[in-house]
Design a protein around this nucleic acid. Structure first.
Length: 424
DNA sequence: TCTGGGGTCCTAGGACCC
DNA sequence: TCTGGGGTCCTAGGACCC
């Protein structure tokens, strides 16, 4: 019998974070918008009931939102990130080990807890999270991660379960999988679902019954592993060591379209400096840099242009100004001087990341001490006086490309001025 | 006026090597 | 008519995730 795996998943996470500090949002429809207030990325149950779907463009559903008095908030990742830390802290003692899977989901390795009533145990964990953070959650328990995801979904859908579904029993599991839509299975996306449905497979049970060889032929090893997991055979374990990350990106849509190179470079410069900061925070250096910018794919009436260029970085670096130099050269190389294009998004990606201490030395590198000290000084100033207190001049002052965030909540838990005050 | 920002893994196919 | 047989490494692109 494999070790039980539990998955705890926060309900309507971003909305729940907002509600934790703003009770007027409780019981009314709430939507949290993506960066640039672009689309709906989190909805309260009331908003889901009104038919607001994940990824709906806000500007296309504006009328319906207004009609039903839906509260629309800009996303506040500082708050969600800090609340996440608290949620993970709350669950830690309830498992042997945890794997943080995303900002709102954590897998738990339940080895050593098997002799307990795991359903009762999981309810106590939910209660702990609720008391410490006010965030509502659901828990799924099963022999594999894929089944734990499925169990979690079941727990979310059926209020009678009081937030916890235990799918360790195979007979019970089968009954539920017989009516579980195959496209809701973790790892089955649009393309795979379409292929499966063409073969008459529409439920999780149908996929579980597919012979392994057929699964391999239809998809890749990924689908083959998925079939194994649906049959209770673990193809992956709870990973407690954080894997070394391979790439990193800073990309943003602009608040309004950009037509001039100077303006574009202002944005790219900021992304480069931010990318350098991120590298240094993680103690990494990058070996490859890619810059891209493009026009709107949603505007077929305008001339399209998509530019992308990369170069390798030698010596490998985390120096923001070094990244900026390279980014400017690459961006300039692809720039079209006709002024006919309205760019809506740009970004910078870093690859071939290695730990700073494992950086390969090159033959002709000069003394980096001064530059490193400069970066440290900039980091220190920006940490103390706020992001973008010191910036390279090329970043500009007008920042007309800055993204929209018209209704962002305060940083309740991470800025002393924003901490809520309770009157006696 | 107007549609997010990150990530991972896998495979095919080309370049290059002996 | 016939055109070797492997290897490795890298990149682009697809699919999926939250």
């Amino acid at each position: 019998m494999p070790v039980p795996i539990a998955l705890i998943d926060c309900n309507n996470y971003y909305v729940s974070c907002e509600r934790a500090f703003n009770p007027s949002l409780i019981g009314v429809p709430v939507v949290v918008a993506s960066n640039n207030d672009g689309c709906a990325i989190a909805r309260s149950q009331e908003a889901k009931d009104l038919g607001v779907r994940m990824g709906d463009p806000i500007h296309l559903i504006r009328d319906r939102l207004r009609e039903h008095d839906v509260r629309v908030l800009s996303s506040n990742y500082t708050l969600y990130g800090d609340m996440h830390r608290r949620v993970v802290m709350s669950v830690q003692d309830f498992a042997r080990d945890v794997e943080v899977y995303s900002i709102d989901e954590t897998f738990l390795d339940m080895a050593g807890f098997e002799d307990r009533d795991l359903v009762v145990h999981a309810r106590a964990m939910r209660e702990q999270v609720r008391r410490w953070t006010s965030i509502p959650t659901c828990v799924g328990i099963a022999p594999t991660k894929t089944l734990a995801k499925l169990a979690n979904r079941v727990a979310k859908k059926d209020p009678g379960l009081e937030g916890v579904a235990d799918l360790r029993d195979e007979g019970h599991r089968r009954e539920l999988m017989d009516v579980f839509p195959v496209d809701d299975v973790w790892g089955v996306g649009r393309a795979t679902a379409a292929r499966l449905e063409a073969m008459g497979i529409t439920t999780a049970s149908g996929l579980a019954d597919m012979p392994m060889k057929q699964a391999r032929g239809l998809g890749t090893v990924v689908l083959e592993r998925l079939v194994a997991e649906l049959n209770g055979i673990p193809a992956g374990v709870v990973e407690t060591m954080e894997p070394q990350r391979k790439g990193m990106a800073v990309t943003r849509s602009f608040g309004s379209p950009v037509r001039e190179f100077e303006t574009l470079m202002g944005a790219i410069a900021q992304y480069a400096m931010r990318a350098g900061e991120k590298l240094r925070q993680h103690g990494l250096v990058a070996g490859r840099l890619t810059v891209f910018y493009h026009t709107s794919p949603h505007r077929p009436d305008l001339p399209p242009h998509s530019a992308s260029a990369s170069c390798s970085l030698s010596p490998m670096t985390s120096d923001g100004l070094e990244l900026l130099d390279n980014a400017r050269r690459l961006a300039g190389r692809k720039w079209r001087k006709d002024g006919a294009h309205a760019y809506v998004k740009a970004g910078l990606m870093l690859d071939d990341l290695v730990l700073e201490g494992e950086r390969p030395r090159t033959l002709f590198e000069g003394d980096q001490t001064k530059r490193r000290a400069l970066m440290e000084a900039m980091d220190a100033i920006n940490a103390k006086y706020g992001r973008w207190t010191v910036v390279p001049a090329i970043q500009g002052f007008k920042r007309e490309w800055k993204m929209r965030a018209e209704n962002r909540s305060p940083a309740y838990t991470t800025r002393i001025e924003d901490v809520p005050i309770a009157y006696a």
